[in-house]
Every structure is written in C-alpha cells, then in structure tokens.
Amino acid sequence: MFEARLVQGNLLKKVLESLKDLLTEASWDCADTGIQLQAMDNSHVSLVSVQLRADGFDKFRCDRQLSMGMNLTSMSKILRCAANDDIITIKAQDQADNVTFVFESPNQEKVADYEMKLMNLDQEHLGIPETDYAAVIKLPAAEFQRIIKDLSQFGESVVISCTKEGVKFSAAGDIGVGNIKLAQTASVDKEEEAVTIEMQEPVTLTFACRYLNMFTKATCLAPQVTLSMSPEVPLVVEYKIGDMGHVRYYLAPKIED
C-alpha cells in the first residue's frame, strides 16, 4: 500500500508544471524515505531529478518500494483539476496497474478522485557524481526567467560567465548581441531578492536557450534559483520545493566541435 497526503497540494501542481514540457513520461520511485523521479528528456541533453521527502508530507505510507510509471501529460491534466488550496492524496495498491489522486477542499465539502493507468517504463537511471562546483550562483528565480526569456530573442545559445566581479549572461544572433551582468548584491531588504556568488575559479559555459526556458517553468516553485557550474560539466539549475525537496535540472553544455 502506498499513500501520500499533502495539505499544500499546490506544491505538487507546480512540480508537474515544471516537468511536463520537458518530459512526456517518467517513473515516480516510492520508498519509505519519500518519492523520487529521475528522467532524461527525449534528446538526452538534460536530466531532471525530483525529490519529495516523506517527512514533507502530512501523511506518508509506503509498505514496499514501488515504481509508478506515468504519462506526465495525463498526470498534469489530472492535477489541473485540483484547486490551489486542495489537499492532495496519491494512493496505489502494491503491484497495482493504476494510481488514484484524491482532491479534498480545505473544508472537506468537495472531494474528487481521479484514477489513472500506470505504465511499464523501462527507464535508465544515471549516477550523478558528487561535484564541488567552481561557481555557485543564487539569484531570484523570476530574474533568471526574465534573463533567459530576453536573451532567447537573440540566439539559440546563452553564454554564462562567472567571475569574481559577477555573473554575465550573453547571447548573439542575426539581430545583434545582448549582455546582462549581475553583480553580487551589497545589501537587500529581503533575502529572496539577493544575488550571491560563491566562486572558486572563473567559469564560462554555453547552453541551449530552449532547455533553460523549459527549466524556468519551475519559477513558480521557489523565490530563488541556484545555478552550479564547473568547466566542461553539466549546469545544475535547482529550485527548492518548499522545505520538502527539490527539482534539479542538469544541462549538458555546448562544446567546441
């Protein structure tokens, strides 16, 4: 028996919004520690990793490990039927071929349940090595979304360059060149408005706008986003899911041919 109840059901709605453009199907791996998902996009350019810890749920029961393969487009359609303040419960029997989503209004006067077929997905899992990144940049998630959206007009790629002076995002194309520089904030009223840079060595990498734009669908999840970079390794773009976990996107860089 698997059952997970989340009073703050809108967190799950937001997680799905942040995955559905990048992934069409994926497996949710459930254990007594929580729920995890790891999947590559169809082109194998990026990898998404989601963690939802058991202690972040209001009720969590998982008698035996199970992997629930789901069509994320369908899951997203179902979660769109939940109101933002609904309590969401996910339920499945052991070795079941379907999963049930229950949405309760806060006053319990409306209860809806939706059943969805599970899929048998033979998904490859990749081992992500522990890495000490050369540069870790934290910035407001909305600011990052705006930068990527603005620079996407210029070309297919964004160059992210981090030095001790700050971080620079650049794009070039037929209409011209765009550069956006962010310095570390000296002082801010609110922590979530801060730009902070921890840098061991300068690093410059080139990434596809298309993927960065899809990652920014997670902007609704968290006030801040963390970018971790090292020379010639994938970029990590991380959004926290409340205090119960995270969505991490790994994006392979564009490299000199």
Partner: peptide
C-alpha cells in the same frame, strides 16, 4: 562551431 553535448557523456548508467 559549438555542438550540443549529450548528458550521457557526463553521467554513467547505473
């Protein structure tokens, strides 16, 4: 000329 790398060039299959 830059070329898009695959994520599988960096992370090994488990």
């Amino acid at each position: 000329k830059v070329k898009q790398a695959s994520i599988m060039n960096f992370f090994q299959k488990k």
